[in-house]
Design a protein around this nucleic acid. Structure first.
Lengths: 207, 207
DNA sequence: TAAAGAAATGAACCTAGATTCAATTCATGT
DNA sequence: ACATGAATTGAATCTAGGTTCATTTCTTTA
């Protein structure tokens, strides 16, 4: 018998794996999925290209795992806010605000995570995390309806609408105009206001 | 002297060009930008691959022109609705409804036109048409504020929010769930309600 | 320190799909 | 019918970037 994995090696391996995942985050945050190449990620992780393939079976799975990891963080943050004390109205306001602030602080990354198409595996992973986000919002809206904070409405659709409005208002291409570029706090405030109006207003009555 | 373009030939040329553009529309409506190859488009147009390059300098420019053409149609429809008789509230309601109905009727195409990243030229063309759409909505919102139909608000942002909500609610990946798939009319109605609430409600007051 | 198994390296390989172009077909005017 | 110039064809070319793998470097145990 001549070789067996020692604990230290295991840690190094795990560490290298983590560094690669972090590198994906960094590179994607810089150039998006479209511009993120395996060679670039490897370099950012301080590793040779081939090494990436010792830890992940393909680009798609690597990137999908990186997305899931990141989305998991964000989801935990959002879920914590949604679970806090207060009326449904207040909690929804906080959730939207937190989402907005975090998104504007890292627009490119946020866009990639939420909307930018990529390898099929990545798209699949995103679908899952997106639904998880939508579920948080939907739950808050449902709570609010039950409590009388919000009028009856299609909560599932409203949740999707919130995500759409947040995405478009904060991180979509139109949000990157140089002309009307207010500071992040202002933008987040206005978007939050829009979202809350959408959910909390009395229904529009036709004619 | 032996050859000169005759009128009939010019027409045939123009016609072939148009057929190629239409083929892009058809193919993209089927498989999106991601899956749309030049060879497929050529076949759909009843033309050899090389012929495409006699009419368009590159895939990117071809697809960008196809997008611009299609967006132009949609924009004309939307602008007509926005210019019709009625209060700002009614016109916005109509505009949103028309947008929603047309989008759900051709989801894949709509998604490609509105959101799916593609060649840089395509993305650039989309940015322009997107802003044009947003401008229509923004104009209606501004009118509504002036008329007292809507409370004061960030009209530019609200317009972006509407597009986001429409996109997400109607044609985004979450909208394609098999489970809660109501008919198009119902979906359009609910999304319209959401959008109108978002714009017409009294502002949310913090605590 | 040597033998043996693992991991890392990065240049070579492979593939999908855009682009080109020599050969062919079609239109025109004499 | 023929000469001329344009348009069409589609198989061959080119390229970017993901993936592989022979070689090298590192770890462990005897």
């Amino acid at each position: 018998m001549a070789y067996r994995h020692t604990e230290r090696v295991q840690e190094q391996l795990q560490d290298k794996r983590d560094r690669i995942l972090q590198a994906v985050r960094a590179v994607v945050g810089e150039v998006g999925f479209r511009g993120a190449q395996v060679a670039t990620v490897a370099e950012a992780a301080g590793v040779a290209t081939g090494t990436v393939y010792r830890h992940f079976p393909s680009k798609g799975e690597l990137f999908a795992e990186a997305l899931a990891l990141n989305a998991g963080h964000e989801l935990a943050v959002l879920a914590a806010v949604a679970r806090s004390e207060g009326t449904a109205m207040d909690r929804l306001a906080d959730a939207v605000r937190v989402f907005a602030l975090r998104a504007v602080r890292a627009r490119r990354l946020a866009w990639a995570m939420i909307a930018e198409p990529a390898e099929p595996e990545v798209d699949a992973a995103r679908l899952i995390s997106r639904r998880a986000f939508a579920d948080v919002f939907e739950g808050l809206i449902t709570d609010g309806i039950a409590a009388g904070d919000f009028p009856p409405q299609n909560a599932r659709l409203a949740a999707a609408g919130l995500i759409g409005a947040l995405t478009e208002g904060l991180i979509g291409p139109l949000a990157q105009d140089a002309d009307h570029q207010p500071n992040a706090a202002t933008l987040a405030r206005d978007v939050t206001a829009f979202c809350l109006q959408a959910v909390s207003a009395r229904p529009y009555k036709e004619s």
